[in-house]
Deep mutational scan, measured.
Amino acid sequence: GATAVSEWTEYKTADGKTYYYNNRTDESTWEKPQELK
């Protein structure tokens, strides 16, 4: 099967917290998305 390329990108805020942003859905989350686990 084809490997899905994750749409999630990991970013850090100014105070060093990590969050994740999805370019396709324009969604952001503090929790690590399922695709990255």
Rank of each mutant, 00 (worst) to 15 (best):
residue 1 G to M: 14
residue 1 G to F: 13
residue 1 G to Y: 12
residue 1 G to A: 11
residue 1 G to E: 11
residue 2 A to V: 13
residue 2 A to T: 14
residue 2 A to S: 14
residue 3 T to H: 14
residue 4 A to E: 15
residue 4 A to Y: 06
residue 4 A to V: 14
residue 4 A to I: 14
residue 4 A to S: 12
residue 4 A to F: 08
residue 4 A to N: 10
residue 5 V to I: 13
residue 6 S to E: 10
residue 6 S to P: 11
residue 8 W to K: 00
residue 8 W to N: 01
residue 8 W to S: 01
residue 8 W to E: 01
residue 9 T to L: 12
residue 9 T to V: 15
residue 10 E to T: 04
residue 10 E to Y: 03
residue 10 E to G: 00
residue 10 E to V: 07
residue 11 Y to S: 06
residue 11 Y to T: 06
residue 11 Y to E: 09
residue 11 Y to V: 15
residue 11 Y to K: 14
residue 12 K to D: 02
residue 12 K to Y: 08
residue 12 K to W: 07
residue 12 K to P: 03
residue 13 T to Y: 03
residue 14 A to H: 10
residue 14 A to Q: 11
residue 14 A to E: 11
residue 14 A to D: 09
residue 15 D to F: 04
residue 15 D to V: 02
residue 15 D to Q: 06
residue 15 D to Y: 04
residue 16 G to R: 00
residue 16 G to L: 01
residue 16 G to S: 01
residue 16 G to W: 00
residue 16 G to D: 04
residue 16 G to Y: 01
residue 17 K to M: 08
residue 18 T to I: 14
residue 18 T to Q: 04
residue 18 T to H: 06
residue 18 T to F: 08
residue 18 T to V: 10
residue 18 T to W: 04
residue 18 T to D: 05
residue 19 Y to K: 06
residue 20 Y to L: 01
residue 20 Y to K: 00
residue 21 Y to R: 07
residue 21 Y to L: 03
residue 21 Y to V: 09
residue 21 Y to S: 01
residue 22 N to S: 02
residue 22 N to V: 01
residue 22 N to T: 00
residue 22 N to L: 00
residue 22 N to M: 01
residue 22 N to A: 00
residue 23 N to D: 09
residue 23 N to H: 15
residue 23 N to F: 10
residue 24 R to I: 15
residue 24 R to E: 11
residue 24 R to A: 13
residue 24 R to Y: 15
residue 24 R to L: 15
residue 24 R to P: 03
residue 24 R to Q: 11
residue 24 R to N: 10
residue 25 T to G: 01
residue 25 T to A: 02
residue 25 T to N: 04
residue 25 T to M: 02
residue 25 T to S: 04
residue 27 E to P: 01
residue 27 E to H: 03
residue 27 E to R: 03
residue 27 E to Y: 03
residue 27 E to N: 03
residue 28 S to R: 15
residue 28 S to M: 15
residue 28 S to Y: 15
residue 29 T to Y: 08
residue 29 T to R: 13
residue 29 T to V: 14
residue 30 W to L: 09
residue 30 W to E: 10
residue 30 W to G: 05
residue 30 W to M: 10
residue 30 W to Q: 07
residue 30 W to A: 06
residue 31 E to A: 06
residue 31 E to D: 10
residue 31 E to V: 11
residue 31 E to T: 09
residue 32 K to D: 05
residue 32 K to L: 09
residue 33 P to G: 01
residue 33 P to D: 02
residue 33 P to M: 02
residue 34 Q to K: 10
residue 34 Q to P: 15
residue 34 Q to E: 15
residue 34 Q to M: 11
residue 34 Q to D: 15
residue 35 E to A: 09
residue 36 L to G: 10
residue 36 L to S: 09
residue 36 L to E: 08
residue 37 K to M: 15
residue 37 K to P: 10
residue 37 K to Q: 15
residue 37 K to W: 15
residue 37 K to L: 15
residue 37 K to V: 14
